[in-house]
């Protein structure tokens, strides 16, 4: 039985102190969240905090659920921006990392460019991108891509370069071509590094998408936050923020799950790092 699926059922199946404490441990974070929201709700009601300053969770829910179609439209637009930007970053950074690690000459020429791009604040770049790429989803995707690709390149490159000398000697003693060395040894070795980069990148992709939507957009949760706060519809803005948090958590967990499913040896393998 998977942990934390349903504490009550778990208790019925194998009742004992072990099962009880396990169920409790799995439920603790959820209980904490529920308690936090309860305190929030009670605090807002008790001190009569106005909605536009800090809305109660119940107000956030009613205001957000009142326009399900519109909220879903904005959510979907943001998910699309995050996904495209993130996938673009993956597609670009893997070959780029391979190139950077392939030879010192290539590394010396590309690396300063990478650092230069990274040192530009992406928020500052966004309005310029709108002028260059037009008022469509392209500038948003590009901002998302720019925000999350750099840490990805760095972690993939670090993984490719941290292959122990013994493995490289094994490749050389078998006269493996560079391509086979990359495919059979370097890339698999880098998988844990790639995934730690992906985890950082997916989190940043959410940030990038919202930044893009702040600057120029008429859709997306970033736009929803801006437009609703402009009219002091703070509960709706909070609703958008909660949805963004949920998107971030779900996407992060998706990356974690992919790693667990397809690269089980990569997950917390100490021997592997040693």
């Amino acid at each position: 039985m998977p942990e934390g699926s349903n504490p009550a059922v778990e208790l019925d199946l194998d009742d004992g102190p072990g099962a009880l404490s396990r169920a409790l441990r799995a439920a603790t974070p959820w209980i904490a969240v529920v308690v936090l929201f309860l305190l929030w709700e009670l605090g807002v009601r008790a001190f009569r905090v106005p909605d536009y300053l800090l809305p109660a969770p119940s107000a956030i829910w009613t205001e957000t659920a009142a326009i399900p179609g519109a909220v879903w439209g904005h959510t979907w637009a943001t998910i699309k921006t995050i996904s495209y930007g993130f996938l673009l970053a993956v597609v670009v950074s893997l070959p780029l990392a391979v190139l950077v690690t392939a030879s010192p000459a290539v590394a010396n020429s590309i690396y300063p460019l990478l650092v230069l791009v990274q040192s530009i604040p992406k928020v500052a770049l966004a309005p310029v991108l709108v002028v260059a790429l037009g008022a469509n989803e392209m500038p948003r995707i590009v901002v998302t891509f720019l925000v999350c690709f750099f840490p990805l390149v760095i972690s993939v490159a670090a993984g490719l370069l941290s292959v122990p000398a013994e493995y490289i000697e094994l490749c050389r003693s078998c006269r493996a071509s560079r391509w086979r060395e990359l495919w059979r040894v370097r890339l698999p070795y880098a998988v844990p590094f790639i995934f730690s980069g992906l985890k950082v990148a997916i989190t940043l992709a959410v940030v990038g998408a919202v930044v893009g939507e702040f600057v120029a957009s008429d859709v997306g949760l970033g736009y929803l936050i801006q437009s609703s706060t402009a009219f002091f519809k703070t509960p709706l803005a909070f609703g958008a923020i909660v949805i963004l948090a949920v998107i971030g958590i779900v996407l992060f967990q998706a990356v974690v799950t992919i790693e667990r499913l397809f690269f089980p040896w990569s997950v917390s393998d100490d021997r592997f790092r040693g």
Binding site: Y167, E181, R184, P188
Partner: peptide, 27 residues
């Protein structure tokens, strides 16, 4: 054939695949 001080088996490949690895690396 070379045997190193450490086994240097590839941790993601099965024992059988590791034994076959030189052939794979040689193409």
């Amino acid at each position: 054939g070379i045997v190193f001080q450490k086994p240097t088996l590839l941790p993601w490949a099965s024992v059988l695949d590791n034994v076959l690895m030189p052939l794979k690396l040689m193409g």
